[in-house]
Amino acid sequence: MSSGMSEAEYLSGRLLLAMPGMGDARFDHAVVAMCVHDEHGALGIGIGHVRDGITLHGLLEDVGIDPGVAPDVPILNGGPVETARGFVLHSNDWGGEGSVTVNSLCDLSASMDVLRAIAEGRGPSRYLVALGYAGWGAGQLEGEMRRHGWYAAQGRPEILFETPTGRRWQQAWKREGIDPSHLVAQTGSA
C-alpha cells in the first residue's frame, strides 16, 4: 500500500472525535462515524449535530415520499461535503440496494430504498438520517491524525443509536475512559 498504512490502521468503523481547539469551527465537538477509509481517502458521516430547519418528514416530502409511519426525527449535519445528499446509518437488520456494512458499527445506505422502507415501517429497527458527509483525499486524514485534530475512538453502536445527539461527543470520550473536561485545546511540542 502506497500510504504506508496497514489495513488494521484504517479507521472504518471507528468514531472520530474532534479534539478541542482543532481550528475548524465546522467540526467543533464533532463525532464522525467513519464509513470508508483506505488508500484512496476517507468518508464519514457526522452524528454529533442536528441540521437546523429540517426533520425527517420534511426530507421525505422533499424527495416525494409520503412520511407514512416514520417518526418526525431531526436530520443530522453529516458534514460539509454534498450537503443536499442524504445518508442513513442503520442497524444491520435491513439491507437493500446499495447498503454497505461498516464493520460492526452500522450499515450505510444512500439510496431512496431505505427512506421508503422507513416511511412504510419495514426499514431498519435503528437508524440515523444525515445530509452531507465529511470527506478526505488520499493521505489527508492520516495527516490530520498526526496533528492536533482527531481522536479515533472505538466504534460503539450504542453511541449512534442510544445516545442523544448532543451528548454523543462527551459520551464517546467517556466510553474511552477519558474525561473530556480535562482535554486541552493545544498540544505541546518537545
Rank of each mutant, 00 (worst) to 15 (best):
F27N: 03
E158R: 10
G13K: 09
R175M: 13
P180G: 09
V73E: 15
A110S: 15
G4V: 04
K174P: 00
E97S: 13
A153I: 10
H40K: 13
G68F: 08
S111C: 05
W94V: 07
G53F: 10
R147C: 00
S91C: 10
H57I: 05
H29T: 03
L105C: 09
P124E: 10
G139L: 11
G78C: 06
E61I: 09
A18L: 05
N77H: 11
C106T: 15
L11N: 10
R116N: 13
L160I: 04
A130T: 04
H182T: 15
E7H: 07
A25F: 02
D179W: 02
R168L: 01
M19I: 04
V102A: 08
T163M: 11
D28L: 06
E61F: 00
M112H: 08
M145N: 03
C35I: 02
G139V: 01
G96I: 08
G95C: 11
E176V: 03
R85P: 00
G132L: 03
S12K: 14
R26I: 01
L11Q: 14
W136D: 06
S104Y: 00
I75G: 03
W173R: 03
S104N: 13
G86T: 07
R168K: 04
Q170H: 12
V184L: 14
P74C: 09
R175L: 14
R167M: 12
A33S: 11
K174I: 14
Y133D: 02
V50R: 13
T83Y: 00
P80N: 08
M19W: 02
L56Q: 13
D28P: 00
Y10I: 01
T187A: 15
T101W: 00
I159E: 02
G58C: 07
E158K: 07
D38I: 07
G44K: 03
M34I: 12
P157E: 10
G135T: 06
M19T: 04
S99I: 03
H90E: 08
R146D: 12
R126S: 14
D24K: 05
E120R: 14
G4T: 06
E7T: 12
A110H: 11
R146G: 10
L115F: 13
A70C: 12
F161Q: 08
S91A: 15
A119M: 07
M112R: 15
S111L: 04
E9S: 14
